[in-house]
Computed example of a mutant assay.
Amino acid sequence: MKIVLFYHSLLSDWNHGNAHFLRGIVQELKARHHQVQVFEPENGWSLQNLVNEYGQEKLKELQQYYPGLETNFYNLKTLDLDVILQDADLVLVHEWSEHELVKRVGEHRTRSNYKLLFHDTHHRAVTEKQSMAAYDLTHYDGVLAFGEVIKNIYLQEKWTKKAYTWHEAADTTVFYPHSKTEVEGDLVWIGNWGDEERTAELHEFLINPVKDLGLKAKIYGVRYPEHALKSLADAGIEYGGWLPNYKAPEEFAKYKVTVHVPRRPYVQALPGIPTIRPFEALSCGIPLITAPWEDAEHLFTAGQDFLVAQNGEEMKKHLQTILSDNNKAQELATTGLKTIQQRHTCAHRVNELEKVCEKLEIDSAKIYGNKNEETVYEK
């Protein structure tokens, strides 16, 4: 197939967690000999922040982890959809795109033969409903939603007639267990502060337990306000700033445990959506402890793939268990990794996307080429 993707950024993961999944999907599609082109807005905020703070060198470094990864830049004023979408079979437009782009691609769809999907990977269908309702999906063939609850919102609100659940997953070509050459500390956490959407939770499940237990810990991420940095310093936690997403596996290998602290909108209104962070940790073979979230779609098995702490005191107990019991830690890491490898890789998600293409009646010869259809992954 010829596939065209409109996303916020392929090159930058500065405050842009979806870059992990997008990069993995693009590389997997290319490995299956699909023609893939990605378009991102010129002067996009994520890429601009990355370049302004760290320079162009980081873009060269990306190629070491994702050989041949390419993107294209567009300007809405000069964007020629007739040229970009010529002979396309499938077009995906991400929900971080401007309303004008979403509308224009939809209108172009009425004069073309490709199939067009809107891809939602965020909580704005709940937290910014007015903005999401303003997207004109009239001429789209459906929505790819990264959780059942998001899919149902699109259908209930009649924003679309068809929607498919398409969870994020781990790119195991980059996110895999690295050899532990030398342990540098007890706990590592990789994540952004979260726009005050989880401030209390970060204190209860991360900062306070580290301080109370006297752990050697390091935190990576961006957009940490002064009060957050002060709290980290007070707890004796080293702050590492922005970490390129592709370097996370190397950091996980230097520590004994990590935690997941979901943002409040996911816990309260979007059960079943863990975001990319647990996929990243589990695929790298590091023991994971999470703050509470409802795995409504049974992606994992709590207590086997990871431990769940209902409150700060339970988090401290779980941390003590993992740090003092090597057998328990290894068992947890092994089981979590196995679950990722069996069910939650970007290869699995491309299999699911190909099934959606079947439902959209794209020619199976274009979808699968010479591949035996019987090997396609079924969830």
Score class of each variant (00 low, 15 high):
residue 8 H to R: 13
residue 274 P to Q: 03
residue 16 H to M: 10
residue 47 L to Y: 05
residue 234 D to W: 03
residue 69 L to S: 02
residue 161 K to M: 11
residue 54 Y to D: 09
residue 376 V to F: 03
residue 341 Q to A: 13
residue 61 E to Q: 09
residue 308 V to C: 01
residue 110 T to K: 04
residue 359 K to G: 09
residue 14 W to R: 00
residue 25 I to R: 01
residue 249 P to G: 01
residue 266 Y to A: 01
residue 94 H to V: 07
residue 297 E to H: 01
residue 129 K to H: 04
residue 92 L to K: 01
residue 200 A to M: 03
residue 251 E to M: 12
residue 332 L to I: 13
residue 260 H to V: 14
residue 196 E to T: 08
residue 321 T to R: 03
residue 368 Y to S: 01
residue 38 V to S: 02
residue 331 E to M: 09
residue 296 A to N: 05
residue 280 E to N: 10
residue 236 G to N: 04
residue 291 A to M: 04
residue 365 A to D: 14
residue 253 A to K: 00
residue 220 Y to G: 08
residue 361 E to V: 09
residue 36 V to R: 00
residue 138 T to H: 02
residue 377 Y to R: 06
residue 331 E to T: 15
residue 99 H to Y: 05
residue 295 D to P: 10
residue 72 N to T: 10
residue 295 D to K: 06
residue 35 Q to D: 13
residue 277 R to Q: 04
residue 56 Q to N: 10
residue 111 R to P: 14
residue 292 P to A: 08
residue 243 L to H: 06
residue 173 T to S: 11
residue 302 A to V: 13
residue 338 K to A: 13
residue 166 W to C: 05
residue 350 V to G: 04
residue 151 K to E: 11
residue 237 I to S: 01
residue 158 K to L: 06
residue 238 E to A: 11
residue 285 G to S: 07
residue 77 K to N: 15
residue 151 K to I: 12
residue 371 K to D: 14
residue 43 N to K: 14
residue 216 K to A: 05
residue 6 F to R: 02
residue 350 V to T: 05
residue 210 V to S: 00
residue 215 L to T: 12
residue 198 R to H: 04
residue 71 T to Y: 09
residue 28 E to Q: 09
residue 165 T to K: 08
residue 263 R to I: 14
residue 291 A to T: 07
residue 250 E to T: 13
residue 20 H to V: 12
residue 54 Y to M: 10
residue 203 H to Q: 13
residue 290 T to H: 02
residue 303 G to H: 05
residue 226 E to P: 08
residue 272 G to C: 01
residue 272 G to P: 12
residue 11 L to I: 13
residue 21 F to S: 03
residue 321 T to V: 11
residue 154 Y to G: 03
residue 115 K to H: 08
residue 267 V to M: 00
residue 235 A to G: 04
residue 371 K to G: 08
residue 132 M to R: 15
residue 312 G to F: 06
residue 266 Y to R: 00
residue 366 K to Q: 09
residue 138 T to K: 08
residue 72 N to V: 14
residue 111 R to N: 12
residue 38 V to P: 09
residue 378 E to K: 12
residue 180 K to Q: 15
residue 153 I to W: 06
residue 81 L to F: 11
residue 359 K to E: 14
residue 244 P to I: 08
residue 185 G to W: 01
residue 45 W to F: 15
residue 330 Q to I: 07
residue 286 I to A: 00
residue 310 Q to E: 05
residue 306 F to W: 04
residue 109 R to E: 14
residue 46 S to A: 06
residue 89 D to L: 01
residue 189 W to T: 10
residue 143 V to N: 00
